[in-house]
Design a protein around this nucleic acid. Structure first.
Ligand SMILES: [Mn+2]
Ligand SMILES: [Mn+2]
Ligand SMILES: [Zn+2]
Ligand SMILES: [Zn+2]
Lengths: 136, 136
DNA sequence: TAGTTAATGCAACTAAGTCGCATTTAAAAA
DNA sequence: TTTTTAAATGCGACTTAGTTGCATTAACTA
């Protein structure tokens, strides 16, 4: 349960923290502050301060995607991420573990390119930059 | 030669563009605007406008690293990059091609972690956050 | 060489994230 | 339970990489 997880990490159990972990846990996908700011009541300073506490306590991990936003997710087993340059979708790649490289410690892997849907022409950007979905 | 490359891409050959390609070509490593602003004379707006032209003409590619800065390099054969979380060094991984994933088009791979030097304790951050290099 | 169009410099702007500080709140101590 | 104390919060101001509008300048074209 969320409270006991925070207790183990010696984090004060505040309503902002419970709310934030609850939201991250329910969404089960990487999100930016922008993505969830309407689902949470705390100030953005509180969001970022708590996220970085969670990161240093290994409850959350993060990566940067296309654009300038950083994405956060509940820490699970190590896995890579894929960001689509066309539709900007972010996918957790459970199947593809980050590679190993002798001498290095690889902690994170981020791939960019064209996702399965966009490769098949399922989602394309129209001329206005809006994303449209067609059947394959 | 740099001029003929630009001609092929139907880019106006300006002194700013020649200077920028010259610098990127001579450094042979990914650099941010900050890294090279003292080596070039153009305004930062001109830098970013030209970089994005070069990217859309496939002369340059880019990726984001630790911190908020974006890094740019002359486009070579496809290769992955490694960013060290300790010393923030960026390495081009010529040996490791980006992986393939059925259905996807992977165009870029970015790995983060601890570089060979930092893993061996060759470079460590001291308490002031300065990076020091020791012999292994 | 003159005309056209794109490129440039400059200053103002944007937006994600950070920081200082006064106030509130969780948890320890009494 | 009440008091004490340190940590967490909200708010506004700030930072900084990158972008944009606009007047001016410099490549290419005829
Ligand atoms: Mn993930
Ligand atoms: Mn490279
Ligand atoms: Zn896509
Ligand atoms: Zn390192």
């Amino acid at each position: 349960m969320i409270n006991s997880i925070m207790q183990e990490k010696n984090l004060k159990i505040t309503s902002a923290r419970k709310e934030l972990l609850e939201v991250l846990n329910s969404l089960k996908r990487p999100v930016s502050f922008e993505d969830i700011k309407h689902k949470i009541t705390m100030d953005k300073a509180t969001f970022y301060r708590n996220i970085s506490k969670f990161e240093s306590e290994s409850l959350v991990n993060s990566f940067e995607s296309n654009g300038k936003k950083r994405y956060y997710e509940i820490r699970q087993f190590p896995h890579a991420h894929f960001v689509c340059n066309v539709c900007n979708t972010i996918e957790c790649l459970g199947e593809i573990p980050p590679p190993t490289l002798v001498g290095y410690t690889i902690l994170d892997a981020l791939y960019k390119g064209i996702c399965r849907n966009c490769t098949q022409g399922v989602c394309i950007k129209d001329l206005q930059g809006e994303i449209m979905y067609n059947s394959p």
